[in-house]
Nucleic acid binder design. Structure first.
Length: 586
RNA sequence: GCGCCCGUAGCUCAGCCGGAUAGAGCAUCAGCCUUCUAAGCUGAGGGUCGGAGGUUCGAGUCCUCCCGGGCGCGCCA
């Protein structure tokens, strides 16, 4: 149960009653009424702006309306105190029994706590990674990968029918470069001395096995024929190999896409042509001449050229966008239009793309295209991930793609572990740059967010183990804990921990609606902090220890509390695709 | 030149579709281990929320302009 939506319903009910009683006019717009946690804990457990929202349409002072509502709320069950404050806020304090009931709810629902059917089975398409199949993934890719994957997990958990997709850019010039690079490695494998890799080709060693495999399979067959003859073959082999490499990298991170879509195949199947014709039929394509971009030196070979343009400006883009290159082949935009058209045709009206920051300028045109293709029915949300700055103990790790000396995602996953990568990459908002320090993220200290959260979970299980040893008479199964005497939990620190854990349903829901999985990471960090705080309160004052040898009633109630917290932490980590640990010792 | 993102404590960043006295971590300083793991916790100092207008009962949050940084701007993807 999301307690805030439940209390909002209660407030709305009282407002309706006041309308009924003639205190407030009919037909009030109540949509802006919010019930939220107040910023200041001192203001109570929840606050509502109802009176302030209604003041103007009701033509009565907000504090007066607040009094009316407050008077009624005082009689509602579980509400311990109601006060009108500030400009007309209504602050509510809920009875301990209310919070005890929330704890019982957490214990009863366990991993499903906070899970509501927000999506109602609506299909959502999440496209992420979509890196060119020209080499291994690097850390920058990792960020979008984790973001997309955890967002997909989150949406799936809340009742959306999620499909995870990867778009393979295997049709452009870059895969031809890949093919030439692989052909060089092929000749090398046949015994030729190739020397330095020429400028403009991929220098990485990862193409050596591709060349070797080709030589082993076909011998010298592709050595002395023209490029036009060998290129498609070598390209196909190289793309296949790179895709296997990438899928392995993804598997090492615990990521698996359901659908891989080949750009080349879209072209071959005439899907791009079909998308083009659809837009043409809708009058959204014309032949025109684009201005050269201003503010930077025009490309050397710039010449005004009539070309097929999509009327993106009709859908909010800044200029109309070209669909064909000068050689007659499709632009990247054109094939991407076809891909999104294909997604829409497969029944998705809710599209999410996760891109790197350097593609930010591409958002408007893609949204314009989705809008045009679906007649406004489909929505595309593009989440852009900023750069990751890789550090090792504070020192920047040198990465140069040109020399082939860049740290791969695989390297990082193998060094620090997939769980660490999955969590740390979400400890910033997607649109803020992120530092990833290889040394710090494996540190066993509170400076390391994932350690901090796992440590809280481990401590909870440590207490369980101790109680099993010292007080075996206490039933520790969730069923028994649910029935524990929670009136023993009366300290504000204990209730505060329940209160925080009880906001989990709201956090889940809001993270899903906003498409912002990082909120889960921040919440878990806060929850862990609240737990560590209570733990230390027990250090300072033995009466607050979870295990009180002389008092099995209190001990069991406190076990219920921390097991509940542990369940919420575990539920959160599971969405991250991270295994909660029960002890920290290796 | 235009578009998008960002600008919050010395540093790195949160701030929940506008809500009350703007938060956390790091760093600095001062404290807490005969303990359920101190792998942790408590406290203190530190802010014109880049600037100026505007909308609103109320603006870090929305709008306009300006300043500063990043990304992008046909034949790369």
């Amino acid at each position: 149960m999301n307690l805030f939506t439940a209390l909002r319903d209660l407030v709305l009910k009282e407002v309706a009653a006041l309308v009924e009683a003639g205190e407030l006019p009919q037909n009030l717009d109540t949509s802006a009424i919010a019930v939220e946690p107040p910023r200041e804990a001192g203001h109570g457990d929840v606050a509502t702006n109802a009176a302030m929202v209604l003041a103007k349409p009701a033509k009565r002072p907000p504090r007066e309306i607040a009094q009316l509502i407050a008077e009624r709320l005082k009689h509602a069950p579980d509400i311990e105190a109601v006060e009108v404050a500030g400009a007309g806020f209504i602050n509510l304090r809920l009875a301990p029994s209310f919070w005890h009931a929330r704890l019982r709810e957490i214990l009863r629902e366990g991993a499903d706590y906070g899970v509501v059917n927000l999506g109602k089975g609506a299909p959502v398409n999440v496209e992420y990674v979509s890196a060119n199949p020209t080499g291994p993934l690097h850390v920058g890719h990792g960020r979008g990968t984790v973001f997309g994957d955890v967002l997909a997990n989150l949406l799936q958990r809340l009742g959306y029918k999620v499909t995870r997709e990867y778009y393979i850019n295997d049709a452009g010039a870059q895969v031809d470069v890949l093919a030439r690079s692989a052909h060089l490695r092929y000749r090398e494998a046949l015994g030729e001395v190739i020397g330095d890799i020429p400028e403009g080709l991929y220098p990485g060693d990862y193409l050596k096995p591709v060349g070797a495999a080709l030589a082993a399979r076909d011998g010298a067959k592709w050595r002395d024929v023209s490029e036009a003859d060998w290129l498609p073959v070598v390209r196909g082999a190289a793309i296949d190999a790179m895709l296997r490499l990438i899928k392995d990298d993804l598997a090492a991170l615990g990521v698996r896409h359901e659908v891989f879509t080949s750009e080349r195949k879209l072209v071959e199947d005439g899907k791009v042509e079909a998308a083009f014709r659809q837009l043409e039929a809708d009058g959204l394509i014309y032949t025109g001449v684009l201005e050269p971009p201003k503010g930077k030196p025009a490309p050397d070979d710039w010449e005004p050229r009539p070309q097929s343009l999509f009327r993106a400006t009709k859908f909010g883009d800044d200029v109309d966008r070209p669909l064909k290159k000068s050689d007659g082949s499709w632009t990247y935009f054109a094939t991407d239009i076809a891909y999104h058209r294909d997604k829409i045709a497969r029944g998705f009206n809710d599209l999410i793309d996760v891109w790197g920051a350097d593609h930010g300028g591409y958002i408007k045109r893609m949204q314009a295209a989705v809008n045009a293709l679906s007649g406004g029915a489909a929505k595309l949300d593009v989440k852009v991930c900023q750069l990751v700055k890789l550090l090792d103990n504070g020192e920047p790790v040198k990465m140069s793609k040109r020399s082939g000396q860049f740290v791969t995602l695989r390297d990082v996953v193998e060094r620090v572990g997939k769980d660490v990568v999955r969590f740390i990459l979400l400890t910033r908002r997607n649109d803020a740059p992120l530092d990833f320090d290889l040394a710090k993220v494996t540190e066993q200290s509170k400076d390391n967010p994932i350690f901090y959260v796992q440590y809280a979970h481990a401590r909870i299980h440590s207490v369980l183990r101790r109680v099993a040893e010292e007080m075996p008479e206490i039933a520790r199964d969730v069923g028994s804990l649910e029935a524990a005497a929670f009136d023993a939990l009366s300290d504000e620190a204990e209730l505060g921990l329940i209160k925080l854990a009880a906001t989990w349903p709201r956090v889940l829901e809001q993270a899903a609606l906003a498409h912002e999985p990082h909120r889960l990471a921040f919440f878990l960090n806060d929850l862990a902090a609240a737990f560590h705080r209570l733990w230390n309160k027990g250090n300072d004052d033995p009466r607050f220890r979870f295990m009180i040898l002389s008092d099995s009633r209190t001990t069991q109630a406190r076990l219920g509390l921390i097991v509940g917290v542990g369940l919420v932490i575990a539920a959160g980590l599971t969405i991250f695709g991270i295994e909660p640990v029960e002890e920290m010792r290796a």
